[in-house]
C-alpha cells in the first residue's frame, strides 16, 4: 500500500538540513538519465550540505548508481545539472575530480599491485604528498600493505578502496554500497571511517540498500524508486511521519500473557493505559516505531 507523499513537491526537495543555512556541496537540479528508451533517473532534484551524510536508498535498479555516476562526472545527464562544490560536473569534471573521492560498488583495484602500490599510484595521480602508510593504518591493513590486492579478502579490498577514495583528502565522498557483502566487523570498520570523515567536516553521499546502516549513519536519507525520489528527510522525521504511532503493551495474568496495541494518537489511549496500570500486571511497554524499511514500503509499495 502506498500513501500520499507529504514531502513531494513535483519531485523536488528542499534540503532543510538542520534547518539552517549551509554551504551546498552537492546540488542536483532536474537530473535525468536514459538508457535508450528506459528512463533510469527521472528529473530528480536535491542538495547536500557541507558536513552532511546523505543516505541514498533504493532497491536494485532504482537509479542509485546512475545518479552517483552523474554526480561524479562518469555520466552526462540527458537533462538537468549536477553541481559539486559549486562546479558543473558535466562541464568541468576534472576540476571536480580533484576534490572528490569515489568508492565504487564493484571491486576495482589493480590486482597485481600491492595495497601500498595501489594507494601510492592514485596519490601520485593527484600529485599530492600523501602518507600512504597512515591511510593504510586508517583502514587497519598494515600487515597487508605489501600484499597484492588479488590476495586480499573482499572486506580487505573494500577497505583499500575506501582508503583510495581518501587519498586526495576529498571534500566530498561518494560511497557506493561501501559495506555490501561484508562481514559485520569489516562493515563496522568502514562505518567508523565514514563517521570520522563526517567529524572532519567532510560531506558524504552514501549509496546503500542497507536501511539500518543508513539510519545509523545518515543525517538525512533520500528514497529513490523507479528513478524518482519519493522522500527526503531525516530518518527520525520519516519514521515519525510515515511510521506507525503505536504502543504495544504486554500484560501478565498468572502464566498467561496478553498483548494489546494502542494507537498513540487516539484520545482513548491515555485512559486505556491508565486502566491497565491500575489493574497491574503490565509486563512490557514498547512504542512500535517504524523502521526505514517500513517507511519505504509504505511509500513505494515495494521491498528493498
Amino acid at each position: 500500500m502506498t500513501v500520499d507523499n507529504p514531502y513531494k513537491v513535483r519531485n523536488t526537495y528542499v534540503t532543510g538540513y538542520s534547518g539552517s543555512a549551509h554551504v551546498m556541496m552537492i546540488e542536483a537540479t532536474g537530473l535525468t538519465y536514459r538508457y535508450g528508451d528506459f528512463v533510469a533517473v527521472d528529473d530528480i532534484s536535491f542538495s547536500v550540505a557541507e558536513g552532511e551524510i546523505l543516505g541514498f536508498l533504493g532497491p536494485n535498479g532504482a537509479g542509485k548508481s546512475t545518479t552517483v555516476k552523474m554526480l561524479t562526472g562518469q555520466l552526462v545527464p540527458a537533462r538537468g545539472v549536477a553541481t559539486v562544490l559549486g562546479t558543473d560536473v558535466s562541464r568541468h569534471p576534472k576540476a571536480v575530480h580533484e576534490r572528490i573521492g569515489v568508492c565504487f560498488e564493484e571491486k576495482n583495484l589493480y590486482p597485481r599491485m600491492t595495497v601500498r602500490e595501489n594507494l601510492q599510484f592514485f596519490a601520485d595521480l593527484f600529485d599530492r604528498s600523501v602518507d600512504v602508510d597512515e591511510l593504510i593504518r586508517k583502514v587497519d591493513l598494515e600487515k597487508w600493505a605489501s600484499e597484492r590486492a588479488e590476495a586480499l579478502s573482499k572486506g580487505m579490498q573494500q577497505r583499500v578502496m575506501v582508503a583510495r577514495a581518501l587519498v586526495n583528502d576529498p571534500d566530498v565522498l561518494f560511497l557506493d554500497e561501501p559495506t555490501s557483502g561484508l562481514d559485520p566487523v569489516s562493515a563496522e570498520q568502514i562505518r567508523e571511517i565514514i563517521r570520522a570523515e563526517k567529524t572532519r567536516g567532510k560531506t558524504v553521499f552514501l549509496t546503500t540498500h542497507n536501511m539500518a546502516e543508513a539510519d545509523a549513519l545518515s543525517d538525512r536519507v533520500a528514497f529513490i524508486n523507479e528513478g524518482r525520489i519519493v522522500a527526503l528527510d531525516t530518518p527520525e522525521n520519516l519514521k515519525l511521519r510515515l511510521g506507525r504511532r503505536l504502543l504495544r503493551v504486554r500484560t501478565r495474568a498468572g502464566d498467561d500473557f496478553a498483548e494489546e496495541v494502542l494507537p498513540l494518537d487516539d484520545d482513548a489511549t491515555p485512559d486505556r493505559m491508565g486502566a491497565l496500570l491500575r489493574a497491574g500486571g503490565i509486563a512490557t511497554v514498547h512504542t512500535l516505531e517504524a523502521t526505514l524499511e517500513e517507511v519505504f514500503i509504505q511509500l513505494t509499495g515495494r521491498k528493498l
Binding site: 561524479t72 575530480h97 576495482n108
Partner: peptide, 8 residues
Amino acid sequence: DALFVSPA
C-alpha cells in the same frame, strides 16, 4: 572507472 574519477 577509478582512473576516470581521478585527474587523469
